[in-house]
Amino acid sequence: MAERQDRLKRFLKDEARAIGFDACRIARADDMPDSAAALRDFVENGYHGQMAWMNETLERRSSPLSLWPEARSVIMLAMNYGPDEDPRPLLERRDRANISVYARNRDYHDVIKGKLKQMAGRFAARSGADVKVFVDTAPVMEKPLAEKAGIGWQGKHTNLVSRDYGSWLFLGSIFTTEALDPDSAEKDHCGSCRACLDVCPTDAFPAPYRLDARRCISYLTIEHHGVIPEEFRSAMGNRIYGCDDCLAACPWNKFAETASEMKLSARADLKAPELSMFLGFDDAAFRKFFTGSPVKRIGRDRFVRNCLIAAGNSGHPHLAAHCRSLLEDDSAAVRAMAVWALARLLSKTEFAALAKSRLRDTDEDVRREWKREEEVPCI
C-alpha cells in the first residue's frame, strides 16, 4: 500500500510540473474544522456584502465532504502568476486604467480548469479512483485546503502566501476517492509584519486575518452592483478592476522563484491602457475587447462605472468630454458616476450650468448625485 501511495504521489507531482503547475500537494478531505467556523463568522458579520451566494453555499463550502461525501483526498494545485514588475507605480499614472494583475490575460478559470481536467483524467486512469475538479467558482475553500496541503498559509490579508511564490498564486483542486497520504501543512510565517494591512487604501481589514469585503476595492469594482458608496470613490484612484495593493506589499514576493515559462503573461494592451478608450465603450466594444478575459464577467455597465470613478480621480480635465457623453447612458449607475466625475473635472461654473439642465433625471441615485455635487468644490 505504501509503495502504491508513493507511486501515485510521484505521478501527480510529475504530471503537475509537466502541465504547467508550480506546486502540487495533498490534503485530507476531512481536515477543515477551523476554516468552517471562520467562514461562518465572516458571513454572520455581513462582511460578504452583496455576495449572497456565500451565505447560500455556506454549508457546502464548510467541508469538502459536504460537497462530495465520497472524497478522501484533495489534490491542491497552484500556478504562479506573479508580475514581472511591481504593479503599484501605475497608480500614479491617473490617465491610465489599472486592472488587477490576474485579469490582464485570459480568464484563469478557463486556463486552470482545462489543465485540472487533463491531469485528473490521467490520474483516474492510473489509479482507478473517481475524481472531480474545481476552480474557485465552486463552493470550495481553496485557500484553507492549500494551507493544509502545505502550499502556503493564509496571510493577514486573507490570501494565500507561499515562501516560494509570495502572494501570487492561482489555485485549483482535484477531489478524489483515493486515500492518498497527506503532505504536511504549512505554518504561518507572517510574524509581526503588517505591510498588507497598512497599505489597504480603504481600511478593509478590521483585524489581521479578517477582511470586510464591503470595503475592499476588489469587491467594489467586481462584485458590487449599482452606485459605489461615496466614501470609497476617491480611495479607488484609477483601479477599475480589482486591487493588487495588499498582494504587492507582501515582503515574501521578493523571495519568489522565477515564474514558470507557461505562466500567463499580461496582454500588452492591458498593462497601462488609456482611460479615454474605455470610457467610449458600448456593450459590443466592451465584449469584443475583453473576449476571453475575466473582466468580461462584470459587464459593460459596471466596468464603465468604475472607469468614470477613475476619471473623476484623474485630475485630467480632457476626460470631461467622455464623461459628459455618458450622462444619457441607459445605466443609472453610469449616469450617476458621470455626474460625480464631472464635478471633479469641470470648473464650478461649468458644472453649475450643466446641472441646471440635468436635475430631472428619473433615477433617484442620479438625482442625488446632482444635488450633492452642487455643493462640492470643483476645479
Rank of each mutant, 00 (worst) to 15 (best):
A2P: 02
Q5Y: 04
F11I: 05
L12H: 05
D14N: 14
A18D: 13
G20L: 07
G20M: 08
D22M: 07
D31W: 08
P33W: 06
D34R: 05
A36E: 03
F42L: 09
W53D: 05
E59Y: 04
P64D: 04
L67G: 01
I75K: 12
L77D: 11
G82E: 04
E85Y: 12
E85N: 10
P89W: 02
L90T: 05
R96T: 07
N98E: 01
I99C: 04
S100D: 06
V101E: 02
R106G: 14
R106N: 11
Y108S: 00
Q118H: 11
A120L: 07
R122N: 03
A125P: 00
R126M: 03
F134Q: 00
A146K: 09
E147K: 12
I151T: 08
W153C: 14
W153M: 06
Q154P: 01
H157P: 01
T158F: 07
N159C: 06
D164I: 02
G166F: 05
I174R: 08
I174Y: 06
P182G: 09
E186A: 15
D188P: 03
H189S: 10
C193M: 02
C193G: 10
C196H: 06
V199H: 03
C200P: 02
P206D: 11
Y209H: 13
A213D: 04
R214D: 02
R214G: 13
T221H: 11
E230G: 04
E230N: 06
F232T: 10
S234Q: 13
A235R: 13
M236D: 00
G237C: 07
I240W: 00
C243D: 15
N253A: 00
K254W: 08
F255S: 00
A259I: 04
M262S: 15
M262T: 15
R267M: 09
L270K: 00
L279Q: 04
G280L: 05
F281I: 03
P294V: 13
D301I: 07
R302L: 06
V304E: 08
C307W: 01
A310H: 10
A311R: 04
N313H: 06
L319R: 09
A320I: 00
A320F: 08
L326G: 02
L327E: 06
S331V: 10
V334G: 12
V339D: 10
A341R: 06
L342F: 08
L345N: 01
E350L: 03
F351H: 10
F351T: 09
A355M: 02
D361E: 04
R367C: 10
R367F: 04
R368K: 13
E369G: 08
R372D: 12
E375T: 15
P377W: 01
C378E: 09
C378I: 01
